[in-house]
Design a protein around this nucleic acid. Sequence first.
DNA 1: TTGAAAGCGCTAACAC
DNA 2: GTGTTAGCGCTTTCAA
Lengths: 331, 331
Amino acid sequence: MTTISDIAEKLGVAPSTVSRALAGSKEVSERTRQRVKALAEQMNYTPNLWARNLARSKTDTIGCVILQFSNTFFIPVIEAVEDIADTHGYSVITSQSRRSIELEKKIVHRLQMMQVAGLIITPTLEDISHLLAMKETGMPVIMVGRTHPQFDCISIDNYKGGQLVANYLLKHGFREIGVVISGERSNEPEKYRLKGLQETLKDNGLTLADEWIMVVGNNDPEGGMLAAQMWLKLKNKPRAVFCSNDQLAIGLMQGIQASGRQVPEDIAVIGFDDIPLLDHMAVPLSTVAYPKYEMGKIAMQKIIRKLDSFDNENEVEHFLLKPHLMARASA
Amino acid sequence: MTTISDIAEKLGVAPSTVSRALAGSKEVSERTRQRVKALAEQMNYTPNLWARNLARSKTDTIGCVILQFSNTFFIPVIEAVEDIADTHGYSVITSQSRRSIELEKKIVHRLQMMQVAGLIITPTLEDISHLLAMKETGMPVIMVGRTHPQFDCISIDNYKGGQLVANYLLKHGFREIGVVISGERSNEPEKYRLKGLQETLKDNGLTLADEWIMVVGNNDPEGGMLAAQMWLKLKNKPRAVFCSNDQLAIGLMQGIQASGRQVPEDIAVIGFDDIPLLDHMAVPLSTVAYPKYEMGKIAMQKIIRKLDSFDNENEVEHFLLKPHLMARASA
DNA sequence: TTGAAAGCGCTAACAC
DNA sequence: GTGTTAGCGCTTTCAA
């Protein structure tokens, strides 16, 4: 590995001069700059980031932690973060916590050891002590898709999302409405979606029967399949079902169809997230959509503002984007 | 930020002692270890990775570069890499090149600056100079899903995949067979898939007509939609079409269906990759599957073997996994 | 414009 | 067992 000193030596100049030349400092003669750059190129010089960051005691790296890559609605968020970071000279390191608080902590701890300049995270929220600790060191931390009073957050109005679903179903004449949820204890978005639906039903003189609240324990199509079994066993079946996310809805639809029943004839289904490929499903899934790229963009912009100290240190800011209903064939 | 020296000072010991205690070295008295650990905990000490790596002149980080997150077949690969890395004490940084050679180079260069211990990459192969350069510094580099004579590779037998498709279609009585490909100039897997199909057809006395080779320029469902337009315009239509990946196939099916034609009645469709959710499509897509998690696992294991120097430095090894046909409803 | 020198936080000989 | 010392490769005052 060739270092700055190697170059300096060969050129008979000081390492600091090489450093300046490479950094494009104005305080170096044009001639020196040229010589340095040429030799660096020729010697195949690669700066050592660890050394640089250590010397500067800071990095231009942003940590980005999402729940899981397989939930494809995170992809546009990631890409927005990457895009905005890039235009501002930041680099991003993305990881998935796989919805495990232990893994989340491990990742965050490592990012901390790497002295990242900021953190964008969709936390499980099962524990936030590690996030509070980071924040206390002065590092900008911003939550995406989840909210917490002590942190800057960019999320969507999940309650409103639930309302949209309820109103849509009511408008289409459904009165017997059920739900499928994961039931994860710290899944606040899910709770608000449910609440929005529930309260809107109530406002319309309807109640969400307990046995129509199907709790399946996970967020994958498998959970939806399980819900289908539950629904089939119900003597008194809801005519429409809201799933707290698209993956559940997809599994539900398949379970239903496998039993010979029809969507939406026997049961209307509506999801949440508007992930890719929904148009291509056996029955295109109606769902609640929201601007995912925008979320990542705002998150990264907020981080940059904080890093540039254009923001009041002690204020937390919550962005809440509006969801909208995307009607397809399933409901 | 509290440092090792802060702890040393408060305890009245040398920084090196603290370092040893924290590293769990045996050469420290139990009592000292306890005191150090307690104080470190209390002072909320976080090791500085940059400093550590610089001092050690090495890292325990592996770089992993894939083409795109949105092509979900990469997810199991990533997870395998993460899993195996973790059990061996390595950490991994994953990025996507978005199929851009410029971005790929940028990412690789940065990983190089970070002195990663190894690199796992699905390269675009449009240019490999940067990869050769890395390899020459002695860093283990292994390709996943693509092959190159100068690099260790873990991939699948794409030619065989094409054969499987041809044989399957022939067995089911199809004789008029077309293909949809991206046509990317350095997409070797696609070329081999096509070749496997083509030569098998030839062996059976059939030829792949030029006008039945639909080149769409990308790998997304949009490309498939485009192919549908091309197919519809054809006066002489192939009765079965092989798409070089599932995303194309999904788009193709949708384009076909939107026109009122039926899959597989009017046109049989078969894809490649076996991405998630295929079971849930309007018409479940028949495709070529292969062990994705296994690929990531082998890649990481190979890296570890090289890092432990259990491998011959100057031998390149190519792993080729066997694909198999996953028949569903589309063909 | 350039050089010398100190230091970022940690590790790893080498002594004691 | 523990301390001393010398870096790792780079940046950044401070002088010249």
